[in-house]
Design a protein around this nucleic acid. Structure first.
Length: 781
DNA sequence: TACCACCCGCTTTTT
DNA sequence: GCGGGTGGTA
């Protein structure tokens, strides 16, 4: 047997071999956190501290859970399937499926993603005739999720004024609606599971007895409810509590805005009486200058548990800093550096471009696209979130549970079948009157509306009958065809992609059956009536999942399993440019990843730190942690850049460079451009190596980089464009005086020669487009 | 019912 | 600058 503990450093070894007691591991970026977690599990089992069935490991993302699972199977000869490894939501789902009756849920409950939840709320507001100006669905969604994440039911929420009381009432009404329709939102999965454990002694004791070791990844990201759930599951305060092994990094806490409570780390340390807090400070990722920058920056945060990363790698290259006079120019420079790097043998997928907000990606994308450099943008729509996929899934939901009004509403008239707002209103009235689902209410609608609706009901029922003996992939295919979705998209201009996605859904169902074994990780899936293997499972067969000898069986159909899978794991986002591509993403999305070369762009006051966070100290500290996360993504080479002007929300904005530059060590930085004054500080010393590229020497000669993209036509030389359009004698940001409109600032320039126009934002008269050949404009200052 | 024109708003996001 | 939502019209 390979020695698990070989090659661990002293800190890691100490963490892995801790006795069976609560432990808090402060794991810095790149310190081998996942390795410690998995080795700890393997070590515990190998040394007989616990059997696989006694392990519960919880993460935030499916990706992290899968990674842990994979590494463990490689490490351990034993069956890892008895362990519970998953996301908070995945594990809660599992418990709720096993105990659906005790949890007060229908066996086939469906899971709403955020989109579904929002539309459910819109439906609710309409049904209750609520003024959606005063009570926007978005706000209500935030209110409800926030309450649930604090563990609060409507009765527990304090409402001091009428406005909040109304929110509480709507929260209660929403919960009722969900219950009636047999659906559960993400936060509800956790809260419901928490309540199940809390109010059901037998179930709680079963799991408390079973899970002797609970390991938590990214502990700094847990919210109040998740911490409470962990305490309950671990039997906190009981005679034989489980050993909780919490791994986290307070310096990488960047999700306070969605309810993460870093305070959980402190609370855990005190409440569980953690005897030894272990810090993993040896960094295996970044070179010295990069790490120095990260350490230096984060030391400006006041509230930390305290930690300093070190590395054995040398200083490495300096951190390169670039100042551009516009966002377009920043992008042009980026292109140049990337070309250099690739020419020197760097692989494009090892180059990451990071930014604070998604809006910043456009300019960069445009530049990369025009230059023909393959790139991949993270974020955006994911597979199971696409409209056509959602539609197909809604039909499948209706096969499983016709009471699902959300699914009903989504597809009753899609593709259109003559059921308009009028008919739906009648139907909703009927549903209210008879206190039943929309599907059931169809029977009470008379006349023409009743017959078109009736046809829809018959369509669904026919589908259900047709698919009764079909396998899951056959069912999916049948539904995409008979629903009319494929035919509908055939008639659409952009429909081909959507049809391909629908076909991809069939493929996904096949993969779900073959590769993932119906998502039942222990495939002791058995047919009650026939011996397994005599034929493929039909989508509607009852399948009993025997997780392990100790577990209570989970009974569900392949279809429900697939639908759950679709909600809980939204899938990859569009895999653009499959080849070796430059990686583009927000800093948030980069957490947990690493690259040889990293560009952090748009380092400007107002953008990063973001203006909405600059007001309060907590917000600023989170921005700083975000910057810390960004810096620590880089292995060998780090670039920081900012632009003095950029188009934001369609308007030209001017920024000074980010205060974070003032918080980085001079010795680690190399300025590629002469630094201009920063926020409240003096220009820095000049760098030793000169300014490099000749075209940066006189930026004032090149005032305009075409804020208006010329389309995909230009072959990526923004610089040439800039020269061409500079002939007007005006530049963006220039102050001008007009006889009639007074003082203003040029915010955009378009066209050239006689057609040249300028958009000018006048102090008194607002923004106007003026032809330069006609308008008399005098430059000021 | 379907399409288009206009309006607003706008940080980060996994499940 | 763009996407989502809405209201008016053919």
């Amino acid at each position: 047997m390979p020695d698990l503990l070989a090659n661990l450093n002293a800190e890691q070894l100490a963490a892995v071999t801790l006795p069976d007691e609560p432990a808090l591991i402060l794991a810095g970026a790149g310190s081998g956190k996942t390795r410690v977690l998995t080795t700890r599990i393997a070590w515990l089992i190998q040394n007989g501290h616990v059997s696989p069935a006694g392990i519960l490991a919880v993460t935030f993302t499916n990706k992290a859970a899968k990674e842990m699972q994979t590494r463990l199977s490689a490490m351990l000869p034993v069956n890892t399937r008895a362990m519970w490894i998953g996301t908070f939501h995945g594990l809660c789902n599992r418990m709720l499926r096993a105990h659906f009756r005790d949890a007060g849920l229908p066996q086939t409950f469906a899971i709403l993603d955020s989109q579904d939840q929002l539309s459910a709320l819109k439906r609710l507001l309409k049904a209750h005739n609520v003024d959606d100006e005063k009570y926007p669905a978005k706000n209500l969604q935030y209110f409800i999720n926030n309450a649930k994440e604090q563990g609060l039911r409507p009765a527990d929420v304090e409402a001091n004024d009428d406005f909040n009381k109304r929110f509480v009432d709507l929260y209660a009404a929403y919960d009722e609606q969900c219950q009636r329709e047999g659906v559960v939102d993400f936060a509800e999965l956790l809260l419901r599971c928490y309540e199940l454990l809390r109010y059901n002694d037998a179930i709680r004791q079963h799991y408390q007895h079973r899970f002797r070791h609970i390991l938590v990844d990214e502990f700094q990201d847990t919210n109040v409810l998740q911490y409470q759930w962990l305490k309950l599951l671990a039997g906190f305060g009981t005679q034989h509590p489980a050993a909780v092994f919490a791994v986290g990094d307070d310096d990488q806490s960047i999700y306070a805005f969605r309810g993460a409570n870093v305070g959980n780390m402190r609370d855990f340390e005190h409440e569980f009486r953690v005897r030894r807090l272990i810090k993993l400070e040896q960094n295996y990722r970044s070179h010295g200058h990069i790490l120095d920058s990260a350490n230096h920056l984060i030391s400006h945060n006041a509230r930390r548990l305290g930690k300093n990363l070190r590395t054995d790698a040398g200083h490495g290259e300096p951190v390169r800093v670039f100042q551009a006079d516009s966002d377009g120019r920043e992008a042009a420079w980026l292109l140049d550096e990337i070309r250099d790097q690739v020419a020197q043998g760097a692989s494009r997928s090892e180059i990451a471009i990071l930014y604070r907000s998604n809006a910043q990606s456009r300019v960069i994308e445009h530049a990369l696209f025009s230059a023909g450099i393959p790139y991949r943008v993270y974020g955006g729509l994911r597979f199971f979130e696409r409209a056509e996929i959602k539609h197909a899934l809604a039909y499948l939901q209706l096969l499983e549970n016709p009471r699902n009004d959300a699914a009903f509403g989504r597809v009753v008239n899609f593709p259109t079948r003559g059921i308009g707002a009028r008919s739906l209103e009648t139907l909703q009235d009927a549903a209210r009157q008879y206190n039943c689902s929309l599907f059931e209410a169809v029977a009470y609608v008379p006349g023409k509306a009743g017959s078109t609706l009736g046809a829809f009901v018959r369509l669904i029922e026919q589908m259900r009958a047709d698919t009764r003996r079909m396998t899951l992939p056959e069912t999916v295919e049948h539904v995409t065809n008979t629903s009319g979705l494929v035919t509908h998209y055939q008639g659409e201009k952009e429909g081909q992609d959507r049809i391909e996605n629908l076909q991809e859904l069939v493929t996904a169902a096949q993969a779900f059956v073959v590769e993932e074994g119906y998502g039942l990780d222990a495939l002791a899936a058995v047919l009650p009536a026939e011996p397994a293997g005599t034929r493929a499972l039909a989508a509607g067969d009852q399948v009993q999942q025997v997780l392990d000898p100790e577990a209570l069986p989970v009974v569900m159909t392949p279809l429900v399993a697939f639908l759950t899978h679709a909600s809980l794991e939204a899938g990859d986002n569009q895999a653009q440019a499959g080849q070796d591509a430059v990686q583009m993403m927000t800093v948030h999305a980069a957490k947990g990843l690493e690259f040889d070369v990293v560009f952090i762009t748009g380092l400007e006051e107002g953008l990063f730190p973001h203006e909405n966070s600059m007001m309060d100290p907590d917000g600023l500290e989170e921005e700083r942690r975000l910057m810390y996360v960004a810096i620590t993504r880089a292995r060998k080479r780090l670039y920081l850049s900012f632009a003095q002007s950029r188009v934001l929300h369609g308007q030209m904005r001017y920024h000074v460079r980010s205060r974070f530059f003032e918080e980085l060590p001079d010795a680690a930085l190399k300025w590629l451009t002469p630094p201009a004054a920063g926020p409240g500080s003096q220009p820095r010393r000049q760098n030793e190596g000169g300014w490099g590229r000749d075209w940066f020497k006189k930026p004032e000669d090149v005032p305009f980089t075409g804020s208006k993209p010329t389309g995909g036509m230009d072959r990526g030389n923004n610089y040439a464009n800039a020269q061409r359009e500079a002939g007007s004698g005006f530049r963006i940001g220039q102050g001008v005086f007009h006889n009639k409109f007074g003082e203003g600032v040029i915010t955009a320039l378009e066209g050239s020669g006689a057609d040249a126009r300028a958009n000018i934002n006048f102090k008194r008269h607002g923004a106007k487009w003026l032809a330069l050949a006609v308008a008399k404009l005098d430059p000021i200052d």
